[in-house]
Amino acid sequence: MALKYAYHPGNVAHSGSPEINETMIPLAHTLGIKLTPLDGATSCGAGIIRQANHRLQLSLNARTFAQAEALGLEIMTPCAATAGNLSEDLATLRADPILLEEINVILQQTSGLTFGGGTEVHHLLHVIVDEFGLDKLSTLVKNRVDFSVAGYYGPNMQQSGACGGDDVFDPNYFEQLISALGGTPVEWESRTQSVGVPGLFSEELTVLRQAAAVLSDARSEGADMIVSACNLSHSILDIYQGKASRATGIQTNIPVTHLCEILSFALGHHTDRFAQLRTRIAVIGD
């Protein structure tokens, strides 16, 4: 039976990282995953709105949950930050019936919705490994990702209850998936380290050092590229590479793509972009 999900694209897929949405749609089609867009869903808050008002973020996400529940679907997102934040807020609402009731009153007044707890949140990576199956995926691969790949999980979805059947501290779903795509998974310790996205503006030097540490770790372990499961970290790791290198004196140059991109390429979509990526790996690589 085809997998069906309510689709939340994550925080910056509509703007700064358009390649995520562009590659997500064809890969879902090839895998036979039916995505119903949550066109009314707001930003998950990225852990930032809650710094202004925790209940506000909970209410916004409760509205997103209620929309998915009304569709009778569970939520799937390709963004680790969104998966982590939504999972966290879902757990908070489920653990506190009084809070849920109070938020439902607000939802009812403002949008006519109530949330009964009847949805779940999944990241694309966990859907593919836990639900779709890596054996099936490997039979669909048309263009092997035949280089060394460092899979970046980030800290947001590596939380208890938010990472499917994977281990919170010692995950290996990404590595299994890279192998299924024909690549060589790189073992590296920084794969669950934060690159400090919420502190980018206020603590830029710290964030640049965090990003440089992650990038240089992947390089030193022999990775040809990093594939990120997080939309936000993906952008930081890419566009702040040069600045991070200058701030720390560490070599940081390495191509960074998103999980959706690499899956899409392996499944035979966007062959021109895959060719560009190969060229960039050849040019950038040491």
């Binding site: 700064g16 990282s17 358009p18 390649e19 562009e22 590659t23 590229m225 993906h234 890419d238 566009i239 702040y240 590479q241 040069g242 390495i254 191509p255 960074v256 793509t257 998103h258 991109e261 966007h270 972009r273 895959f274 560009q276 990526l277 960039r280 950038i284």
Partner: peptide, 11 residues
């Protein structure tokens, strides 16, 4: 890098 997407692809 923002404009070019530098090491990323497409879009």
């Amino acid at each position: 890098r923002m404009a070019l997407g530098f090491t990323r692809t497409g879009g």
